[in-house]
Design a protein around this nucleic acid. Structure first.
Length: 481
RNA sequence: GGCCCCGUCGUCUAGCGGCCUAGGACGCCGCCCUCUCAAGGCGGUAACGCCGGUUCAAAUCCGGUCGGGGCUACCA
């Protein structure tokens, strides 16, 4: 069987984490089955679609590492993968369906429809519109000839039922009494989602439609449309939705929903992909950290969970830390350099890059987010600002002044300069002053970094260099009076 | 309201009739390590929504109930 799947977001917003997961599952399924992954732009909603969002979707998918074989940006056998450029084809199909008596021009006004639904509901009948408001065929022809605006609706066969085997949900059935004669062409001639999507899935020969559960109840419409076109239906798989911590559909008020926002916050694509995959799928074997390649090898759509999943940033953050620690030192420096330079608002010179490389491994094992790094290394590259809370907590303690003074004097004159030399010198000082490491070293940390939290002290001092270390210790000594 | 989907620790999940006194991961708590913060090591906390039924045996099958979610547009 040739597997062809598509991810078809609407460019009406930045790529959402839920969309990212849907894209990922499509990608995993395609790659696992040596199939084709198509990226389509479902941009029939002209009013809400923008170029910015279209670009963001492409960029976010690329960032996640989900490359596609056919579609927007990369092309393929179809002339275009943007629905907005295939309008004529949808109109053609709609005309064919009308000619075949499988669809009809509808003159029902919004008000009439509204009333129909209300009455049906009040009478305990299905509110699904069944075409009963339409004029006789002769009248319809006349009104059409008079250019009266009309939509095109699909004539759902009633009585009837559409059922299908959903790969993740099992058998799902819908009574046609519940499926309305849905609009496929608006009165302005543009196609609705149902038409455009179904036509494209047929024309692009999509074998598996993997999408969000929000489209589950639209599936009978798509199957009806597909079969009315004389095509074979695809296999469907509906993924549960992503929820916020309160169990409600994930939205802006829960924090970030855009993939891009996580990238900006210092998350790694590898961690994001791993985390997203676990939201509804388990590689088994009690494993949680799995590379994209491993996922491809082990992915099985039929084992995907039916439960909605809550997007938990705590676990994402933990996982990000795992992936940060997995980077090689060079990769880490490369990843962090632009952030440090942006923080400083200038380029780092060769000497500074050496210092960064020196201290980076120490920061790497501590960071959960890339964005935590600049504040941790800032002290090496520019003037420091004292964090007042740190200063007040540490510098007013017993022995703090002595430690700073002692360190300043010793480090100014010690022979040589290395981590070991710094440590030996400072430990000797602690012994002489009879201070514990905790009490004696914290003031030095604040003096050289400005904060009570920093990378390990001896390494930090060694990287800072003698002149600046002594300078900062003297400055602190002075500030302490 | 109607139709549809879902229901195992706080969260993501394993589990497919006996291997379950329910496993793993995050979080949380404690201890160890320690120059801060992390990381790491060790230990702990915590769940089969409820009620019936089937069966020698049910987290696993069936029914109901309750709860959550989706759809109900000339949005997608």
């Amino acid at each position: 069987m040739t597997v062809r799947v598509r991810f078809a977001p609407s460019p009406t917003g930045y790529l959402h984490v839920g969309g990212g997961r849907t894209g990922l599952y499509n990608y995993l399924f395609a790659r696992h089955n040596n199939g084709t992954f198509v990226l389509r732009s479902d941009d029939t909603d002209e009013a809400r679609s923008t170029e910015e969002f279209r670009l963001d979707i492409i960029e976010s998918l690329r960032w996640l590492g989900l490359d596609w074989d056919e579609g927007i940006e990369v092309g393929g056998p179809m002339q275009t993968y943007r629905q907005s450029e295939r309008l004529a084809r949808y109109q053609e199909v709609a005309a064919e369906l009308v000619a075949a008596g499988k669809a009809y021009h509808s003159f029902a006004s919004p008000e009439q429809l509204d009333q129909f639904r209300k009455e049906a509901q009040a009478a305990g009948r299905s509110p699904a519109y069944d075409g009963s408001l339409e004029p006789s065929p002769a009248d319809a022809t006349a009104r059409l000839a008079a250019e009266e605006p009309a939509t095109v609706r699909f004539a759902v066969p009633r009585p009837g039922e559409t059922s299908f085997e959903d790969v993740v949900r099992g058998t799902v059935a819908f009574d046609h009494a519940q499926v309305e004669d849905f609009v496929i062409l608006r009165s302005n001639g543009t196609p609705t989602y149902h038409l455009a999507s179904s036509v494209d899935d047929v024309d692009f020969e999509i074998s598996h439609v993997i999408r969000g559960e929000d489209l589950l109840s639209s599936t009978p419409k798509h199957i009806l449309l597909t079969e009315a076109m004389g095509a074979e239906r695809a296999t469907y798989a509906h993924l549960s939705l992503l929820m916020g911590p309160d169990g409600k559909k994930l939205s802006k008020r829960h924090g970030h929903t855009a993939i891009k926002a996580y990238r900006d916050d210092g998350y790694l694509a590898t961690a994001m992909v791993n985390y997203l995959a676990l939201l509804g799928w388990s590689p088994g074997e009690d494993e949680t950290v799995v590379s994209l390649g491993d996922m491809v090898a082990r992915f099985d759509l039929s084992t995907v969970s039916k439960n909605p999943a809550i997007f938990d940033t705590d676990k994402l953050q933990w996982m990000n830390g795992v992936y940060i620690r997995e980077m090689s030192p060079a990769e880490f420096v490369d990843a962090v350099r632009p952030l440090v330079e942006a923080d400083l608002d200038r380029r780092l010179d060769d000497g500074e890059m050496e210092k960064l490389a020196e201290i980076a491994p120490l920061v790497q094992e501590r960071a959960k987010l890339l964005t935590e790094v600049p504040p941790q290394v800032r002290f090496l590259f520019g003037d420091i600002e004292y964090d007042e809370a740190s200063w007040n907590k540490v510098m007013t303690k017993e022995g703090a002044a002595e430690a700073v003074a002692g360190a300043a004097d010793r480090l100014a004159t010690v022979d040589g300069w290395s981590i070991d030399v710094v440590e030996a010198s400072l430990r000797a000082m602690l012994a002489e002053l009879e201070l514990s490491a905790r009490k004696g070293l914290q003031p030095l940390r604040v003096a050289i970094s400005g904060s009570s939290v920093s990378p390990p002290l001896f390494e930090s001092i060694a990287a800072l260099g003698r002149p600046r270390t002594v300078e900062r210790l003297e400055a602190a000594r002075e500030r302490m009076g």
